[in-house]
């Protein structure tokens, strides 16, 4: 039987210097599902997300204990190349961060450096990625223009297209709509629903309605601990733990 849990964390602890940001996180992420991570600011949900593709490596003075298994292999094992991990596990950030390059070059940047050189293949990839990110119709005639000319919502969809062009298995999204207006947010939420057919999506969000609308599973974090983790519907209707209920109903956080 195929294991549906594409990422598993086992007793993960994470430290910024002496400060323990995550405590004993054991959590499974299922394939082709949207998993939402929620919790008040500073609860460790973004830290966990960035740990899943080793983006926290960039910060000096941090260290990880425990294991993060991606397809059964610990991505923190000494023989694992973080660059390889990040090719398979893509990421979209809180603020749209396109490169100051053309729309076309933004998308081909990663694939080219990964060795894709054929112009026709690259063009096909650009179209495919932009279509997946539902941006193609808006930009197909201006691919040569700077990505900085796009609106915030378009830029964020471009960033999603850019991540998809690497053909990752998992897409991590760190509050991808928090800098966007409601219309752009709705577009991206819709997009996430389409993408889960092909990708496993893990999303950090501050917006509880958003988590309820788009996710299949929800994990609630508080003070670096995973308080409750189950089907989104259950979390939002009859959570087992009082803290979860208090947070969801807006009594704190």
């Amino acid at each position: 039987m195929e294991d549906n849990r594409v990422i598993k964390t086992k007793d993960v602890n994470f430290f910024y210097g002496k400060f323990r940001a995550l405590t004993d996180i054991s959590m499974d992420f299922e394939k082709h599902r949207v998993t939402a991570l929620i919790g008040p600011s500073g609860c460790g949900k973004s830290t966990l997300l960035r740990l899943l593709n080793r983006m926290n490596d960039l910060i000096d003075g941090t260290h990880v204990e425990g294991e993060v298994l991606f397809e059964g292999k610990n991505i923190y094992a000494p023989d694992v190349d973080p660059v390889e991990v990040r090719r398979r596990i893509g990421m979209v950030f809180q603020k749209p961060n396109p490169f100051p390059k053309s729309i076309f070059d933004n998308i081909t940047y990663g694939p080219k450096l990964a060795g894709l050189g054929d112009r026709i293949e690259l063009e096909a990839l650009v179209e495919q990625s932009l279509r997946q990110a539902v941006l193609w119709d808006e930009v197909k005639d201006i691919l040569g223009q700077s990505a900085m000319m796009l609106s915030g919502g378009q830029q964020q969809r471009l960033c999603i297209a850019r991540a998809l062009a690497m053909k990752p298995d998992v897409l991590l999204m760190d509050e991808p709509t928090s800098a966007l207006d409601p219309i752009s947010t709705a577009k991206i939420e819709e997009l996430i629903q389409d993408l889960k057919k092909d990708y496993t999506i893990i999303i950090v969000t501050h917006n509880m309605q958003q988590a309820a609308r788009i996710s299949d599973m929800t994990g609630f974090f508080y003070l670096g601990k995973l308080i409750e983790y189950s089907a989104t519907e259950k979390i939002f209707t009859r959570p087992d733990i009082k803290q979860t209920e208090d947070y969801i109903t807006g009594r704190f956080g």
């Binding site: 983006m55 960039l58 990421m91 950030f93 490169f99």
Partner: peptide
């Protein structure tokens, strides 16, 4: 901006290539 570095690294581009490109 640090976000440029992050964007590049998150695409599975090495640190050296990120610096050069």
């Amino acid at each position: 901006p640090q976000t440029f570095r992050e964007a590049s690294l998150a695409l599975g581009v090495s640190k050296w290539q990120t610096i050069v490109r």
